[in-house]
């Protein structure tokens, strides 16, 4: 297991907190003292997974670094909804430079901290999937390759949401976006080879790579805390549903993240120096339809002009993840 779950306390470690747990077993989010790195009043949409994921992640990093944290941010929703003049939501030192350079800016900050002997200060860079897997990819790879002392967190909502839901290299096959419309014989996004940035990060042999979702808070906090304590380049790919871009209900954000993991569509694992060291097992496996149906971006796969063959191909992707990462408990299969 990636982290040591509390086996049984009514809810174990599934809930955010639990009055029955010892203080050191509680999540950062359960604490009244959590830093609320992103303050109330931000302009994210209702039910925004990215706003939630960013607070989860940065609060955990703040807790682990004793508040000694600096964040660099790529352009994107997270930047726009958090810092429109004259108000900022951030309660950590934070800089936004450009869409494609957050990893490099963070490298610069880390270099400055090193040269000033501030070894206690930890540096986080963050961006959406567009800023990470597409336009910022060169800087990201450079940061990895140099093994700069930066924790990069990608908030993956699988398209360019800030600009109006266009396809990114993280958009899943068949998904409707403004640039992959559900028309023609193969509606929605194409079945490409995909750009699996966590695996590409692993190919850099950096000390730490992990995936996580907003539905598995304890796992996420464990990974962020672990990552904060490692020196060198670290990458966390955090799955954050987007109600606006996915056409899902605002209250379904966490549920969809959970279904992405439980279907096998989004494998949750961690890797050290290029090798997978743990996976978060599927707890209650469900077919891919349960994940797809609540999302309007997949609506063309169902209903009157259904595409069961495309659903089957998506299921095959999930099944491949399950095999590849061993996502089912021993004997489940």
């Amino acid at each position: 297991m990636s982290f040591q779950p509390v086996k049984f306390y009514q809810t174990g470690t599934f809930t955010v907190g639990n009055r029955l747990l010892a203080p050191d077993e509680r999540s950062v989010q359960a604490s009244e003292m959590r830093s609320n790195s992103i303050n109330s009043g931000h302009r994210a949409c209702q039910g925004c997974g990215e706003a939630l994921g960013a607070r989860y992640a940065i609060d955990a990093a703040m807790a682990e670094s004793n508040g000694q944290l600096i964040a660099a941010n790529a352009t994107g929703c997270l930047e726009v909804f958090s810092t429109p003049y004259p108000e900022s939501s951030w309660q950590v030192p934070w800089i936004h430079s450009l869409f494609g350079n957050a990893p490099a800016v963070a490298t610069g900050i880390a270099a400055a901290m090193k040269v000033k002997g501030r070894h206690d200060v930890r540096v986080v860079a963050q961006g959406g999937d567009g800023g990470t897997t597409d336009i910022g990819f060169g800087c990201l790879s450079g940061m990895f390759e140099r093994n700069d002392d930066v924790l990069y967190i990608c908030y993956d909502n699988e398209a360019y949401m800030n600009t109006g839901v266009q396809r990114s290299s993280a958009t899943p096959p068949t998904a409707r976006t403004a640039t992959t419309m559900p028309v023609g014989p193969e509606p929605g996004n194409v079945f490409g080879q995909g750009k699996n940035v966590p695996e590409i990060a692993m190919a850099h042999n950096i000390p730490y790579v992990a995936t996580a979702t907003v539905a598995d808070l304890r796992d996420l906090e464990y990974k962020v805390r672990k990552a904060v304590n490692i020196r060198g380049a670290r990458y966390i790919h955090l799955f954050v549903p987007c109600p606006l871009g996915w056409g899902s209900a605002s209250h379904d954000t966490i549920r969809l993240a959970r279904l992405a993991k439980e279907t096998g569509m989004f494998p949750v694992f961690e890797a050290e120096h290029g090798e997978v060291t743990s996976v978060l097992k599927i707890r209650r496996q469900v077919p891919i339809e349960e994940y797809l149906k609540p999302q309007k971006r997949f609506a063309h796969l169902f209903g009157k002009h259904a595409h069961p063959e495309l659903v089957a191909r998506l299921q095959a992707i999930a099944d491949r993840h399950i095999r590849k990462y061993g996502l089912l408990e021993e004997g489940d299969n």
């Binding site: 809930t15 955010v16 359960a30």
Partner: peptide, 12 residues
């Protein structure tokens, strides 16, 4: 008092 509502609110 599982803290879920406190935790999952994207708007604190």
């Amino acid at each position: 008092e599982c803290d879920n509502c406190y935790g999952v609110c994207p708007d604190n």
